[in-house]
């Protein structure tokens, strides 16, 4: 997550010093969901000040970054607005499970169904834990926490549905032969490729 923009947003609300920023950022998530170290905030503040997006509030005595109040500059507000106007792109990361599954199919070291089941059990245990926690938490937890818990539940659910889809097609996948690209010739081409035995 963007600590930089979170700091800008919190400073737009009002001027704060580093220690206050750390506490405010922590409470944004309804708990210590975003594990941001205080030192990270101070370093971010220094970098933002160098870029002219924040500045020390005039008329305050100097001290450590935890005690010096910072405020947003006009350039900082422009940067913050531009951040809000952009959608957040979800990264489609390389999925290690899928790699495992494909290698199980091609290498024959492991039954791909067993790879799938191991993954499924693990996801269901995560979901069981999340559901249990959600039931216990729902009454007392802040709404921000509940929504994040719901997001985690939905992610696991989506993964499980994806596994279901894969399971239905695993036999077909195994039947498909992997087409590997032909190795490209390397180095200097031979002078007479027609007669490799030479003259």
């Amino acid at each position: 997550m963007s600590v930089r923009h979170a700091v800008l947003g919190l400073l737009h609300q009002r001027a704060r010093h580093g220690y206050e920023l750390h506490a405010a950022l922590t409470s944004l998530g309804g708990g210590e969901v975003w594990d941001v170290k205080a030192a990270q905030i101070y370093a971010t503040l220094d970098r933002l000040a160098e870029s002219g997006l924040v500045r020390e509030q005039p008329g305050t005595q100097s001290g450590g970054p935890q005690r010096r109040p910072f405020e947003l500059t006009d350039a900082g507000l422009t940067e913050l607005r531009s951040w809000f106007s952009m959608p957040v792109k979800t990264g489609y990361q390389r999925d290690e499970f899928f790699l495992k599954l494909m290698l199980a199919i091609t290498s024959g070291v492991q039954d791909p169904y067993s790879v799938l089941r191991t993954q499924r059990t693990s996801l269901y245990r995560d979901l069981h834990e999340l559901m249990t926690h959600r039931q216990e938490a729902s009454a007392r937890a802040a709404l921000a926490q509940q929504l994040q818990l719901e997001q985690a539940v939905m992610h696991v659910e989506a993964d499980l549905r994806w596994l279901e889809l894969i399971e239905g097609r695993l036999d077909d996948m195994a039947k498909q032969t992997t087409v590997e690209p032909a190795p490209k010739p390397r180095g200097r081409p031979r002078k007479n490729p027609q007669s490799p035995d030479g003259e």
Binding site: Y124, L127, H128, M131, V156
Partner: peptide, 11 residues
């Protein structure tokens, strides 16, 4: 339903 199933203790 996965989330209903996950409320069980055994699957």
């Amino acid at each position: 339903d996965p989330r209903i199933a996950a409320s069980a203790r055994r699957l």
